[in-house]
Amino acid sequence: MEEIVQSFFNAEIAQAAMPIVLAGLLNTVLLSLLVVPLGLIGGLILALLAQVKGPLVRWALISWVDFFRAFPPLVLLILLFAGLPFAGLELSGFACVAIAFFLNTGAYYGEILRAGIDSIPRGQVEAARSTGLSGLQTMTWVVLPQAVRNVLPDLLSNTLEVVKLTSLGSVVAVPELLFQARQAQSVTYNPTPIVMAAVIYFLILWPVVRLLSRLENRASAGRA
């Protein structure tokens, strides 16, 4: 028992590692604030493109989305980080994370937003257009607000996954929470900093997980 405490919950090491780990937390927050909007923008572009009817656009979009659903985000990130330099294009780990998330999480957000837009009855568009709103105005002021509300739990659930995914940044030397914790671990030869990172992730994301369970239960109660 004593040994486990010494290894995983070592107060001395925790104290020493705290500034390093907290710096990582700050970067994780900043990284999330960057990649979540990026993914949403990517998703919105895809969802709007999906409104263009026609088999060619449809198949192109399905292929795009399925490609990124099949492709592990880490592989995409490594491809950008380790592959692009061979083409003479050297990007920072940070830039690679931004691009990879724009592509990967954009595909997921796109599917969700598309489903949301599809859930709005045609009559809403007809009513808005009959009052003289343009197509874009109708989308912005009538369809999207309702669509987002309808798929809010899914958007939130995906955002949770995106924030968790920022831990991949550690692989390409972005000094986010996990990276900093591993740095501290390799210096101290003690896993306490990683436990600290895990605890921080849990404390921050647990409320979101609880909220999602609530929303899911409410949705299923509504169905019953």
């Binding site: 290894s7 591993r182 896993p191 436990v195 992730y201 647990w206 979101v208 997980v209 369970s213």
Partner: peptide
């Protein structure tokens, strides 16, 4: 059950992998 499920839904998978791989040897 709810606690365990919430825990593993909150933690990034990479953190869990690193924790188990580098952490468990320290516990023998």
């Amino acid at each position: 059950i709810i606690f365990v499920v919430d825990l593993f839904r909150s933690l990034p998978p990479l953190v869990i992998i690193v924790l188990i791989y580098f952490g468990l040897p320290a516990a023998g």
